[in-house]
């Protein structure tokens, strides 16, 4: 399969990428290409030009400074999964990055591309919502930072403007909590049929507070506030997680996605299973 013809420009910096986008209306940014190139091949996207941002070196890498874990937009999933800083400060993100697709996909796909693309079956959007991440953006009208909860607006729809580039994501470092991601992967594509990220702060053997976000079966990740409330103050036991997880149905909203592999009903029934698993795994880390 060949993509339709397009022009190709390579950006040397974020500013250069912005300038090129300005000169070539309708163009698309190209990062790892692992969402975009499949779409081009199927001709579901036919942009007149691609602006390759893949070589802007300062957009790549993981750092911890001033109490913030910062992950550059071009950091490949494999690097996120292997990073000890990510494991320490945002374990759920390391879990999720390590379960994306397969090793070759993780070598090419990037954090920025994953969230800009905002496929409902992607793993990172739910994780970033649960971890209260913020997303750094640069565009013609200046820099801005958007909380993950306001970034993902719907199926493949984000707060990102046409000319805007995701530069990084940021998460508070050194938090006293445990976090984990539990995923039901599609058996062929490995994309998330259901993915749940949980963050738990422990108070001895009880849950002080919890953040839970669910993706995969909804158009954009949702925070499971009913589950969060139900688990807060309760004992950190699998029995209380299983009970709280039943509340997720109230959090999911009306639009549940289904397909030939996993129907709406099946996904709805399986959601509490993965909520409970993510809570249990997060609690095990929170106790340490």
């Amino acid at each position: 399969m060949y993509p339709a013809d397009f022009a190709y420009y390579r950006a040397s910096s974020v500013q250069d990428a912005g300038r090129l986008m300005n000169e070539h209306p309708g163009a698309k940014f190209l990062a790892g290409g692992h969402s975009l190139i499949p779409l081009l091949k199927l001709r579901l996207a036919v942009p007149p030009a691609l602006i390759d941002i893949g070589r802007i070196v300062d957009l790549s890498g993981v750092t911890v400074a001033n109490g913030r874990l910062r992950i550059g937009a071009l950091t490949p999933h494999a690097e996120v999964a292997a990073s000890s800083d990510v494991a320490t400060h945002a374990a759920a993100l390391a879990d999720a990055a390590g379960q994306i697709g397969d090793p070759a996909v993780r070598n090419r796909g990037t954090v920025g591309g994953n969230i800009a693309h905002a496929d409902p079956a992607s793993d990172l959007p739910a994780v970033l919502c649960a971890l209260d991440a913020s997303i750094g953006i640069v565009g013609a009208s200046g820099d801005r930072t958007v909380p993950a909860s306001e970034f993902f607006l719907g199926m493949m729809t984000t707060a990102l403007g046409e000319d805007e580039i995701v530069t990084h994501v940021e998460i508070a470092a050194g938090q006293q909590h445990g976090s984990a991601y539990a995923k039901f992967p599609h058996p062929a594509s490995r994309y998330a049929v259901i993915g749940v990220a949980a963050v738990i702060a422990a108070d001895g053997d009880a849950c002080r507070s919890a953040a839970v976000a669910v993706g995969g079966l909804v158009p954009a990740p949702v925070r499971a506030s009913n589950v969060e409330q139900a688990v807060s103050g309760e004992a950190l036991t699998d029995a209380s997680f299983a009970k709280a997880a039943q509340r997720v149905g109230e959090d999911l909203g009306d639009e549940i996605l289904g397909d030939l592999f996993a129907s709406v009903e099946y996904r709805r029934a399986m959601a509490p299973v993965y909520v409970a698993r993510s809570l249990s795994a997060a609690a095990a880390r929170a106790r340490k």
């Binding site: 190709y8 390579r10 190209l30 290409g33 692992h34 190139i37 499949p38 390759d52 893949g54 397969d102 090793p103 070759a104 996909v105 070598n107 090419r108």
Partner: peptide, 21 residues
């Protein structure tokens, strides 16, 4: 994965990369 090659030593699916990359 039948198109897997090493790109600067790292495995990638070459059906999902552009030559220009």
């Amino acid at each position: 994965g039948s198109c897997t090659v090493l790109l600067d030593g790292v495995a990638v699916k070459s059906c999902s990369c552009l030559a220009v990359q």
